[in-house]
């Protein structure tokens, strides 16, 4: 198995045969933040970034990632500092069970990289490759918008003041 850059670190893994990246990450490397929802491209739970693009790790062979950059949820926070998207997801409870959350976060990172002020329809389209059964997506959209504002340097309503008085 190949050398590749995982969350910024050079890694070499020895896995026999042709194993999809999802299993390489979860079983060989113990990075279980990437989730399994179907194994056949039908849910998006296994999303990771390969060379900066969000892809389905259940359908990419680990070996096909040789020489590439792989980023997973484990590499998203900067040390102990949450990424603004992570903070916004936490603030707005956009993660309920949390099973789909890594996939949405990684997809959203790429969206905000390409577009620092995405409209609601743009968010809907960009995130349409991941299913969530808990949230109904709306809190996820709001979290992406909140994070985008934070990343643009704007002030956002402090959590305590949102919904105050209900």
């Amino acid at each position: 198995m190949p050398k590749f850059t995982l969350n910024g670190e050079a890694r070499e893994v020895n896995v026999p045969g042709a194993n999809p990246l999802l299993w390489v990450l979860r079983e060989s490397l113990g990075l279980t933040g990437t989730k399994f929802g179907c194994g056949i491209g039908q849910c998006g739970a296994c999303t990771v970034l390969v060379d900066g693009d969000p892809v389905l790790s259940c359908l990419v062979l680990g070996r096909a990632c040789a020489g590439k950059r792989v980023d997973t949820i484990e590499g998203m926070a900067d040390g102990n500092g949450l990424h603004p998207l992570q903070q916004a997801f936490a603030d707005l409870s956009a993660a309920q069970c949390g099973y789909c959350t890594p996939a949405f976060l990684l997809t959203a990172v790429v969206l905000l990289k390409e577009n620092d002020r995405p409209s609601r329809p743009e968010i809907v389209a960009a995130l349409s490759g991941v299913l969530c059964r808990c949230t109904g997506y709306l809190k996820i959209y709001e979290a992406v918008e909140r994070a985008a504002a934070v990343m643009r340097g704007e002030k956002v309503t402090p959590l305590e003041e949102i919904l105050d008085g209900i």
């Binding site: 949450l82 936490a90 949390g98 959350t101």
Partner: peptide, 22 residues
């Protein structure tokens, strides 16, 4: 009555929550 971050939110957004298959 006020909005609060869920106690397990940080572990969920960092992928640390341990689900059964993990």
């Amino acid at each position: 009555g006020t909005s609060q971050v869920m106690v397990d939110a940080v572990s969920k957004v960092t992928g640390k929550t341990v689900f059964a298959d993990d």
